[in-house]
């Protein structure tokens, strides 16, 4: 890893981000959602699943979406190959980009939770959970961005990511029975585990989210190995 190269990629990506209307709109989505939800409760605190819905929308529409769009654009325009042929390592490239996406996610999440309620997240366990969830969505974004060859095709992958991993708490509104196989599977998803975490002192939910994050990291690594050469 080389801090100068990471800094150079960060500087380039932040300038590029600011000139890309499509990316600039993404952080606004969770903020608007948080504003709407905050008006619903008439002064009452929002329930935990609602708060995690906002978190899920933030991580899927800002973290995963921005990352996969940035990576896919680099792929589509062949600029990623230029970076990979330079002395910058894959880690330098990913860290530089992740810092930009992380900054945008942090701003969007901070503003959203300012409106929706930040109190439930002020614990070590919740913060660790949010960091792991951020990394999970970040790795998904990198991996998908690496194997998609155009920005247009990222939307086809973003939708399942958003609905499966971002909007998971919405499954309760489908009226499925508690014994339903869909509910049992959804309960293992990262956001559902983090919601569960608030009802227990156990670290098991954090462990499950960590496994999801490791899985996403492996997925990114496989996509990178495929992209690195033309073989």
């Amino acid at each position: 890893m080389n801090t100068q190269r990471i800094g150079a990629i960060f500087e380039k990506d932040i300038k590029d981000f600011m000139k890309n209307m499509m990316l600039l709109m993404m952080p606004i989505v969770p903020i608007i959602l948080a504003l709407i939800y905050s008006r619903l409760g008439e002064g009452e605190e929002l329930p935990i699943p609602m708060l995690y819905l906002i978190v899920g929308v933030t991580f899927s529409s800002v973290t995963a979406s921005c990352m996969m769009t940035m990576m896919a654009e680099e792929n589509e325009k062949k600029t990623l190959r230029g970076l990979m042929l330079s002395p910058a390592s894959f880690m330098d490239i990913i860290i530089g980009k992740s810092l930009v996406v992380g900054l945008m996610t942090f701003i969007a999440l901070a503003i959203s939770l300012f409106f929706a309620g930040v109190k439930p997240f002020l614990s070590v366990q919740a913060i660790i959970g949010l960091i792991l969830l951020f990394l999970f969505f970040l790795f998904l974004g990198i991996g998908i961005g690496l194997f998609t060859k155009s920005v247009a095709s990222t939307s086809a992958y973003l939708m399942p990511v958003m609905f499966l991993f971002g909007f998971t708490p919405m499954i309760e509104f489908f009226g499925l029975g508690e014994d339903s196989i869909a509910i049992t599977i959804a309960d293992l998803f990262p956001i559902m585990q983090l919601i569960k975490m608030h009802d227990t002192n156990s670290w098991v939910p954090i462990g499950v989210v960590a496994i999801w994050t490791i899985g996403a990291a492996l997925f990114t690594y496989i996509c990178f190995k495929k992209e690195r050469t033309d073989d």
Partner: peptide
């Protein structure tokens, strides 16, 4: 034929990026 530039950035910013990457 795989070489490409960042279209939204200026000529200077493109060269500055690679200047820094190559130290």
């Amino acid at each position: 034929d795989n070489s490409s530039l960042y279209e939204r950035l200026t000529v200077y910013d493109n060269l500055k990026l690679f200047c820094k990457l190559y130290d």
